[in-house]
């Protein structure tokens, strides 16, 4: 659950392991996916790229129409929920082995975002108009457009350097931005969760179990403290490794 933090990184470097596998030039790749699998993955990644582009366009249009950036969430709520939930398929891809990433890590990353979308933003109506929601939505949108197009181009063996560079550079700003948005949103939801007793189970009940969603959300926020720096520096390290590697290659050519 701690992983909402990881989620923000997902597009940029959290999936560093995956990046290597997705790269066409990687000679360590044991066996590429079959043509049907590749076709499916290409379609999936194209659809996801398009989906997040729809969200981006939706945001811009709503902003232009309204002339204000407040409450833009409502204009893109449906595609945001749909495409972020669609990322659950990525867990399946890892589980059946057509994408060579860790199932556990991918699950944490995807689930934490799905959690934020459904269990926080969707469930606590009062926070939907907060600017913090927009903060992480923008961070996610840019991240995901780049990440899914990165996969698409990699699968097609034509990865433009610009996309690779963007994937391993923009996180420097987008990741802290996403994390701030997520934390502020959870924080804003806290009083409403407590007031309504949302998703909480109290004693006595015949299962002899209780759950305090309010405390759970606080625990999630605390879990960002150890996770955020760890991931951020992991990504910086990844960036150095992958981008400098490419530059060396260029010199040789």
């Amino acid at each position: 659950a701690a992983a909402a933090a990881i989620a923000a990184s997902k597009g940029n470097g959290g999936g560093g392991g995956r990046a290597g596998a997705g790269e066409a030039s990687s000679s360590r790749r044991k066996k590429g996916p079959g043509p049907l699998t590749t076709a499916y993955l290409v379609i999936y990644n194209v659809v996801m790229t398009a989906g997040w582009l729809v969200i981006a366009v939706g945001l811009v249009r709503a902003y232009l129409a309204k002339g204000s950036y407040h409450s833009l969430y409502y204009s893109i709520e449906k595609p945001l929920k749909f495409f972020q939930t669609g990322a659950l398929l990525e867990i399946l891809h890892c589980a059946i082995g057509i994408v060579p990433s860790s199932v556990v890590l991918t699950s944490i990353q995807v689930m934490s975002r799905v959690f934020l979308i459904w269990a926080v933003t969707h469930s606590v109506k009062e926070v939907q108009s907060e600017d913090s929601v927009l903060l992480f939505v923008i961070a996610w949108t840019i991240t995901e457009i780049i990440r899914y197009s990165f996969y698409t181009f990699s699968l097609l063996n034509h990865l433009p350097y610009l996309i690779k560079w963007a994937r391993y550079t923009l996180f420097i700003v987008l990741y802290p931005m996403g994390v701030s948005g997520e934390l502020l949103t959870i924080y804003a939801a806290l009083p409403f969760v407590r007031q309504a007793g949302l998703y909480s189970i109290s004693l006595p009940n015949k299962y002899n179990f209780s759950f305090d969603y309010y405390a759970f959300l606080i625990l999630i926020m605390i879990s960002y403290i150890p996770l955020f720096p760890q991931l951020y520096f992991h990504m910086i390290h990844q960036r150095r490794k992958i981008l400098s590697h490419t530059e060396e290659h260029k010199k040789f050519e």
Binding site: L203, P204, N205, K206, N208, F209, S210
Partner: peptide, 12 residues
């Protein structure tokens, strides 16, 4: 914590 809780519910 739950088994010894003052609000424990005995088996059905």
């Amino acid at each position: 914590y739950y088994i010894n809780h003052p609000l424990y519910t005995p088996p059905t």
